[in-house]
Structures are given as C-alpha cells and as structure tokens.
Design a protein around this nucleic acid. Structure first.
Lengths: 158, 158
DNA sequence: TCGATTTCCGTGCATATGCACCTTATAGCA
DNA sequence: TGCTATAAGGTGCATATGCACGGAAATCGA
C-alpha cells in the first residue's frame, strides 16, 4: 500500500480523512454558477432553466425521462418547468399513455435555446480564460473520472 | 501556443469552448452532497446546517462575518439559522454594537457538532474509498487550484 | 375481465438560494 | 450636536431541492 506512516491517528482509528472534498466541490460549484449566470441573466434565464432548455427539443419527451437525463429530482423538474411553460417556452402534450406528460420546446423556446447556447459558449470561454485552457481541460477530465466512480443515487435498490 | 489546428471553428469565431465545466461541477456536487447527507441524516442534519455548525463555536460571531466565511448569502444564512435556533443549537446574543446579531453554539450545539464531525469523517473516508485515496487527493488539489483562480463574487466593487 | 400492483405525476412541507427593498443603528463630519 | 452616509440585518418574492403522501392510468396475473 501507500505509506500509512504512524502519525497523528487516534489509537484504534483508521486513516485520517482528507480535507472535505464535498465542501470544495460545492464552493467551486457556487462560484462557477454565479459566473455562468452573469452571461444568462440578459436572457432572463437561471442556470437550472438553461440546463432544462438544452435537454429539450422539438421531439416530445416524458417528464421522468427528462428528469433522469438531467439527474434532477422529478418533483423539482415539475416545478422548474412551470415558469418555462407559463412563458411559452415549453409545451406539454399527451400521447397514447395518458400518464405521461410529454414535453417539447415551442418555436420561442427553440429560439431562446439558441441564444442561450451562444451565451453559454461565451461564459465557458471566459471561464477557461480565468482557469487556463489546459487546466480547465484537466479539471473536466478529473470531474468526468469522479462522476464515473461516484454513481448517482438511485431511487430504491436497482 | 498549443496546437490550435484549423478544424471545426466557425469562420470568425475564436476557439471552441470545452464541454461545460459548470455542469460537471454541479452534477458531481449533487452526487457527493447526497453521499455526505446519508451520514448526516441520523443526526437530523442537512449538509448546509452541518457546514454552519462547523463554522460556529463558543465565541460569539456576527452574522455577516459568518456568512462571509461560509461564502453564503447573508439572507440565506439568516433563514438557515432559524431552525437551528429553534432547536436550541445556536444562541443569538447582542454586543455593544446593537446592529450585530452575535451567534454562538449552545452546549447542545457543541455536542451535536462533535457527533456531526464524526459522521463527516466516516462520509469522507467512504468517499475516498469510492474515488480512491490518491485520486481524491488529486481532485482536492485541482479544486483548490480552481478556487484560487475563480474568485468569489463580491458585493459591489471592492 | 377484474383486482392487485406498478408506473407516472402532482402537491404539501421544509429547507436552500439570491435579489430588491426596507428599517434601524452606528459613524463621520460640518 | 445634528445631519447624512454607511453598515447590519430582516422580509417579500421567485426559484430550487427533495421527501412523504396521494391520485390516476396502465399492466399483469388468476
């Protein structure tokens, strides 16, 4: 194994934990969210709404399916959609299965999505300018790797 | 510079942005939050409440000062504190400056903080087991570096 | 075919988040 | 010593988040 030198471990306790990874993730997440939202604000979009927009299209899609792709709680998505429906960006329809709420973008929604993508690209490039292009690529890589190892919480055992 | 081969760049546009760093940060942040909260649930603590707890102590501290250390919105902290005050974990007092709300932990709060720290350590070690100890250390390092480069949003220009 | 089970969703409740606006208290200055 | 600027904080509003509960539609087995 690696080292495990005898140092400040309480007797009987195992390894010392590293500094809190979750706190660092959350803190950096907050800062970058603010960063991206500066660019989305002119469009009247929150970051959550943007992520919903880019996961929608002309083809109707069930709410639960969308929630899983977004890795977002089903009920959170329900409520996040409400203002987007009210503003005419998202259209709800019904198919043969009367249980499913099928979601798609209206023409307005599609147009907004394109403008939002442009703003996102500006934000991402600006972030890369701050972090350094190479470092950003490495960070993305590390985050991908971590995402592959930390699986999303599944409802019920699967 | 590095490469910059002529490829799918739209004419006139600059570099292509990398895949969305913010989305990866937010997604990994959500998953790890769920991860930590599994360990805090037995204590009836949300992760936000835990982070407030560990930034408090016996010594009274002004709300705004605490908010800045937590890098949390002042008003968010006000509301996050309410249930913790109601449950007797946090005590509010007044000093010579009548504008300041001074916060400290009650004996119950101090005891809870210690139990919560133990649960946090178990969560962190479990996360390290999932990610790999070495990789976690590298990830922490990368996050620290990113935090050093992406400064927190300041209220007004400072 | 009909009753039990499963699937898809919505709502109530509690907390989280941040902005705009307001009140109160202190500090600074003429 | 007042008057004004500034600092600390609360509340309203809108959105975000997830759990528990409940309802309605589809599925499946006897």
């Amino acid at each position: 194994m690696h080292g495990n030198r005898l140092e400040s471990h309480p007797p009987g306790a195992g390894l010392e934990p590293l500094p809190c990874t979750g706190a660092r993730l959350r803190r950096l997440g907050r800062r970058t969210t603010v960063f991206y939202e500066q660019y989305l604000r002119p469009l009247g979009l929150r970051l959550t709404q943007y992520s919903v927009l880019v996961h929608l299209g002309s083809a109707p899609q069930a709410l639960l399916e969308l929630a899983e792709r977004l890795e977002m709680d089903r009920t959170t998505l329900t409520r996040s959609l409400r203002p987007m429906i009210d503003r005419g960006w998202v259209v709800v329809s019904r198919g043969s299965d009367a249980r499913l709420r099928l979601l798609s973008l209206s023409p307005d929604g599609l147009a907004l999505r394109e403008r939002a993508r442009g703003q996102w690209a500006r934000a991402q490039l600006a972030l890369e300018a701050v972090l350094g292009r190479e470092f950003t690529a490495q960070l993305n890589q590390a985050l991908e790797e971590a995402l592959a190892r930390v699986k999303p919480a599944l409802p019920e055992e699967n």
